[in-house]
């Protein structure tokens, strides 16, 4: 399952927000979580991977979760995205 966000943080997804996402994703041990943007797909469990997407304000980011607890993982990540002001959910 996946969820798509539009990046709104004016600084993009830089080190600190990337860490918040990675730490949240890492909590779900049985879940594979990926981030996809601009045709590039990386694991959301590596800070460098997320940074390599180079997300800027206005970019579209899809979070993809697979395996056990996929729904929980996605909703936890959505909470981070929204609460930290990183992005907003796109339909």
């Amino acid at each position: 399952m996946q969820k798509t966000f539009k990046i709104v943080d004016e600084d993009g997804i830089h080190a600190r927000p990337a860490t918040a996402l990675v730490n949240t994703a890492t909590k779900f041990k049985d879940t594979e979580v990926f981030a996809e943007s601009g045709g590039k797909k990386v694991t959301l469990k590596s800070i460098l991977g997320v940074l390599s997407l180079g997300l800027e304000p206005g970019d579209t980011l899809s979070l993809i979760a697979e395996g056990g607890q996929a729904a929980e993982a996605l909703s936890a990540l959505q909470e981070v995205m929204v609460k930290e002001g990183l992005g907003e959910v796109q339909e």
């Binding site: 600084d11 993009g12 830089h14 080190a15 590596s46 800070i47 460098l48 991977g49 940074l51 390599s52 997407l53 180079g54 800027e56």
Partner: peptide, 24 residues
């Protein structure tokens, strides 16, 4: 070099032995 932020302030590297590093 694995990632280079557009603002240039952070460089991500992966060493040949698999260490993932960030120079911020």
């Amino acid at each position: 070099v694995f990632s280079l932020s557009k603002s240039g302030h952070a460089i991500g590297l992966v060493s040949d032995n698999g260490a993932e590093m960030l120079i911020h």
